[in-house]
């Protein structure tokens, strides 16, 4: 069933985000920083998938939100994800596979 030859850079990773006023800015920021991503709307949530790697940048979110946004606040948005949380610091969150 699965294509076993896909590398970590090719396999999809993704995150589901709750549909809300604040999170619209988060979704827009992810779309801006991840040109290869695809966005799917499901009841109550937005599902974003990317081949290999998905990044959330604090600065991009703040630009769209018009206020400060600490990356911890992403906890208010995330419903679920798949992949591995490779980095979560003050400036960015990165979801990617390791191997």
């Amino acid at each position: 069933m699965s294509d076993t030859t896909l590398s970590a850079a090719q396999r999809l990773v993704g995150v589901d985000i709750q549909e809300s006023e604040t999170n619209r800015a988060v979704v827009e920021a992810i779309e801006a920083d991840n040109p290869d991503c695809s966005v799917q709307h499901m009841p109550g949530l937005v599902r974003i998938t990317c081949p290999g790697r998905l990044v959330v940048n604090r600065e991009t979110v703040e630009e769209r939100l018009g206020r400060e946004w600490e990356t911890h606040e992403f906890q208010m948005a995330i419903v679920t994800y798949f992949g591995h949380i490779k980095e979560w610091d003050d400036d960015e969150i990165v979801i990617a596979w390791n191997h």
Binding site: S2, D3, W97, N98, H99
Partner: peptide, 11 residues
Amino acid sequence: EQQMMQGLFQD
């Protein structure tokens, strides 16, 4: 299938 079999278990 998509997220676990084609994602996680490859990892």
